[in-house]
C-alpha cells in the first residue's frame, strides 16, 4: 500500500490540530475579499460617471495577484528556512536519519509541510480570484495558469530555504541567506539588466547625437537572449509577463520590446513567453535544490565499510 510521506503526515496531524492554521488561512482570504470589496467600492464612489466599469476589475485582479506573490516571497522563507534546524534543535534529526526513510523523503516531507500553509492559502484564495472570472477580468484558464505559477514559485522559494536550513547550522543565518537568495532573484536580476541596458542605451544615444541622425537602438541577438534569460529567472518579471499575457494592462512586454528588444517579441528562441520560461526554470531550480539538499543531509555520505548477513 502506498503511504503518505511520514514527515508530511506528522506535520499534517499537528497543523490540522492547530487552530492558528485555519485562522491564518481564513484571515488571508478575508483580507483579499476586503481589499477587493474596498477597491470596487472606491472605484464606483470616486468615479464622476455613475456606474460600474468592468475595466477596473482587471486592475484589482492584478493588484491582488501581486499581493499574493509578495506573500509567497516573504512568507515561504520564514516558514521553511528553520525546518531542518528545528529538527536539529529538537534533537530529532539523527533519529530520522537512522530510519529507513531516505534523505530525499525527509527533504520532500519537510518541503511539503512548510509549503502546506502557503498552498492552503493559494488554494483557498482561488474562489476569491474566481469572482473576477464572473466580472470578466480573467478567464478560468488564465486563473489556472496563475495558480500554477504561484504554486511553482512557492515551491522554488521553499526549496531554496530548505537548502539554506541544511547548509547553515545556525537558524538565523539560514533565514538571512534564504531572503538574500529571494532578493537576488526578484530584484538584483532586474537591477543588473536595467543598469547594463541603461549604460548601453546612454552610450548609443550620445553617439547618435554626435552623428546627428536618429538610428534606432538595436541590441545584438546574443545580448537580447542573455538579458531575457536573466529576466526569466525573476519571479516578479515572470508574474508581470503573466499579467501582461492575461490582460494586456501590464505593459511589461511593450516596455521591454520598446527599450530593450527593439520591437521584437519578448520570446526566447524556445518561443515560450517569459512567465512560462520562468515556471520551467523554477521547476528546474526546485529539483536541483531538493536534490542537493538530500545529498547534503545524508549522514556519513560515504557509509564506510559495512557488511551484513
Amino acid at each position: 500500500m502506498k503511504m503518505l510521506n511520514p514527515v508530511f503526515r506528522r506535520e499534517l496531524i499537528t497543523a490540522l490540530r492547530n487552530r492558528r492554521t485555519f485562522m491564518a488561512v481564513g484571515a488571508y482570504v478575508l483580507f483579499l475579499l476586503a481589499m477587493a470589496a474596498f477597491m470596487l467600492y472606491a472605484s464606483i464612489r470616486l468615479d464622476f460617471i455613475e456606474g460600474f466599469h468592468p475595466q477596473i476589475t482587471i486592475t484589482i485582479y492584478n493588484l491582488l495577484s501581486g499581493i499574493q506573490l509578495a506573500l509567497i516571497i516573504l512568507l515561504v522563507p520564514a516558514i521553511t528556512a528553520g525546518q531542518i534546524n528545528g529538527e536539529r534543535e529538537r534533537q530529532t534529526l539523527d533519529l530520522m536519519l537512522v530510519t529507513k526513510m531516505s534523505t530525499f523523503t525527509i527533504v520532500v516531507g519537510k518541503l511539503l509541510s512548510s509549503l502546506m500553509l502557503v498552498l492552503l492559502m493559494i488554494v483557498a484564495s482561488v474562489p476569491v480570484f474566481g469572482a473576477f472570472v464572473y466580472f470578466g477580468a480573467v478567464s478560468p484558464a488564465k486563473l489556472l495558469e496563475q495558480t500554477l505559477f504561484m504554486l511553482v514559485t512557492a515551491t522554488m522559494a521553499g526549496s531554496v530555504s530548505i537548502l539554506c536550513s541544511i547548509v547553515f547550522k545556525r537558524a538565523m543565518v539560514a533565514y538571512v541567506f534564504s531572503y538574500f537568495v529571494m532578493l537576488l532573484l526578484t530584484t538584483i536580476t532586474a537591477a543588473v539588466v536595467g543598469s547594463i541596458f541603461n549604460v548601453l542605451h546612454t552610450t548609443h544615444f550620445n553617439n547618435m547625437q554626435l552623428g546627428g541622425i536618429f538610428v534606432p537602438f538595436i541590441l545584438s541577438l546574443q545580448w537580447r537572449e542573455l538579458f531575457t534569460w536573466l529576466l526569466a529567472l525573476n519571479p516578479v518579471v515572470g508574474f508581470l509577463s503573466l499579467q501582461d499575457a492575461q490582460s494586456g494592462t501590464v505593459s511589461l512586454d511593450s516596455f521591454l520590446t520598446q527599450f530593450l528588444f527593439n520591437f521584437q517579441d519578448v520570446r526566447l528562441t524556445t518561443q515560450l513567453p517569459l512567465w512560462l520560461v520562468n515556471i520551467w526554470i523554477n521547476i528546474g531550480l526546485s529539483c536541483v535544490f531538493v536534490g542537493l539538499s538530500s545529498w547534503l543531509l545524508m549522514p556519513a555520505r560515504r557509509l564506510g565499510k559495512f557488511s551484513f548477513s
Binding site: D94, L97, V98, P299, A300, R301, R302, L303, G304, K305, F306, S307, F308, S309
Partner: peptide, 14 residues
C-alpha cells in the same frame, strides 16, 4: 548506526 563514517576499518553486522 551509520550516522558517522569511519575513517578506516569495518563494521560487520551478522
Amino acid at each position: 548506526t551509520g550516522l558517522l563514517a569511519a575513517t578506516s576499518g569495518e563494521v560487520r553486522v551478522g
